[in-house]
Amino acid sequence: MSVDATTVRRIAHLARIAVSDEEVAPLQGELNAILAFVEQLSEVDVDGVEPMTSVTPMAMKKRADVVTDGGHARDIVFNAPETEDHYFLVPKVVE
C-alpha cells in the first residue's frame, strides 16, 4: 500500500500538523518508503495468533477509591501559555 498526496494531507490534518505544499511530496516519499519497508509483514502467517495486549503477563493494578490528588489548580495551569483565573485559555471554539 502507498499513500498519495491527498492522503498525506488527510493524515496531517488528522494528526493536526500543518504541512506546506512543499512538504507534501517529500513526506509522501518518506511515508511510502516506510510503508514499503513494513510491507514484508504481509508474508507472515498470523492465522489464529492473538495480538499482543501486554508484553508482561500480569494482573492490572487497581487503586482504592480515595481522593489523593487535586487542590493545586495553580500548579496545573502553571506551564500554560495563556490562563485566566486558573482556566486554560484557547482560541474560541464554536459549537
Binding site: E82, E84, L89, P91, K92, V94
Partner: peptide
C-alpha cells in the same frame, strides 16, 4: 464559551 469574545475557557 461566553466569558470572552475570542477565547474559550477550559476547566
Amino acid at each position: 464559551h461566553d466569558q470572552n469574545p475570542t477565547q474559550s475557557f477550559v476547566d
